[in-house]
């Protein structure tokens, strides 16, 4: 037993040659967010508050695809989504289609705490944000020059592109609009457990580059991108459509519960079931285990446990 925390900044085909100017700020961001989470756990904050706090930090960081730095839709707009879940009560909140809310994760928390519903989207969610007095800004706040360029590239290549992608060569253009293989992926998330075994999970994203307006991914869907119960908390990242189909986050908990295996085994099994290149996740169990498996080239990730273990990594896991 003991507290534990893990967070991610997206899994995907992150090239080993990722230039330092793209790698270092993300590593620094992960370190900063991990420290924020550790301090909060040491101060005995509830994991639900900890994951919200950490995801807010990740959203505010322009190098990750959530909040400021979100990728753009086919119309050049931002549509953000987020989800939060408490393990013991299984209470949860989710939002989609946000264009002005600075911290989508905090609106998800408000939906959980202040409405009879779980999930609000688009205009209704925006109206609720105003009613609750959450910080809102002009949609241009979220749009970074890097993401305008990324959208331009994606549209030239006439395809939907997932975050962190290298410039795409024209010759890989596909007739089929569907994405597979070479893309890289966004999203941020955090899971935490305290000494009493309270668990929580939170995930937030801008979605896919050049996504259709109105597209909803796995992030806000309970059981797909985000899930927590009395056994574990899970936040997934990768190709949304594959994660939805695989009900990835819920399945980690289901395999633990119904097969009686450890968190590590359950998470490894679930990731293995998803076609390679599509998914990564971070998870903690009620007993303080941590695991961060992925079947993509890399995943921006960090974790720490009460016994002093701490890790920040992008590619192959040293803990494997």
């Amino acid at each position: 037993m003991g507290w534990a925390i893990a967070l991610h900044g997206g899994a995907g085909d992150i090239p080993l040659s990722l230039p330092p100017d793209r790698r270092l700020p993300r590593e620094a961001g992960l370190r900063h967010c991990l420290d924020v989470g550790i301090a909060a756990l040491k101060a005995h904050k509830h994991p639900l508050d900890v994951v919200e706090l950490v995801v807010r930090e990740l959203e505010n960081h322009p190098h990750f695809n959530a909040g400021k730095g979100s990728v753009l839709t086919t119309s050049g707009t931002v549509e953000m989504e987020a989800c939060i879940m408490d393990g013991k009560t299984k209470k949860c909140g989710a939002v989609s289609g946000l264009s002005t809310v600075v911290n989508a994760i905090s609106l998800a928390r408000k939906v959980m705490d202040k409405t009879p519903h779980i999930y609000l989207a688009f205009d209704g969610a925006e109206a609720f944000a105003r009613e609750q007095g959450l910080e809102t800004v002009d949609p241009s706040y979220f749009i970074t020059p890097e993401n305008i360029e990324r959208l331009k590239q994606a549209q030239e290549a006439n395809r939907v592109q997932i975050d962190y992608t290298q410039p795409i060569q024209k010759e890989v253009k596909k007739d089929d609009a569907s994405v597979d293989g070479d893309s890289q992926i966004g999203t941020v998330g955090c899971v935490a457990v305290d000494n009493e075994g309270n668990l929580a999970s939170a995930t937030s994203t801008g979605g896919l580059v050049n996504k259709m307006v109105g597209r909803i991914g796995d992030t806000p869907i309970i059981g797909a991108g985000t899930y927590a119960n009395h056994l574990c908390a899970v936040s997934a990242t990768g190709k949304g459509e594959a994660i939805i189909r695989g009900t990835v986050a819920r399945d980690v908990a289901a395999v633990m519960e119904f097969k009686g295996v450890s968190l590590k085994e359950a998470a490894a099994y679930v990731v293995e079931q998803v076609p390679p290149g599509n998914v990564g996740l971070v998870a903690v169990s009620s007993t303080g285990e941590v695991t961060m498996p992925f079947n993509t080239t890399g995943m921006f990730r960090a974790c720490a446990t009460e016994d002093g273990h701490s890790e920040i990594a992008i590619w192959d896991s040293p803990s494997k």
Partner: peptide, 10 residues
């Protein structure tokens, strides 16, 4: 569509 889920005006 390349997606699984579309909502509202989109």
């Amino acid at each position: 569509s390349p997606h699984s889920y579309l909502a509202f005006s989109g």
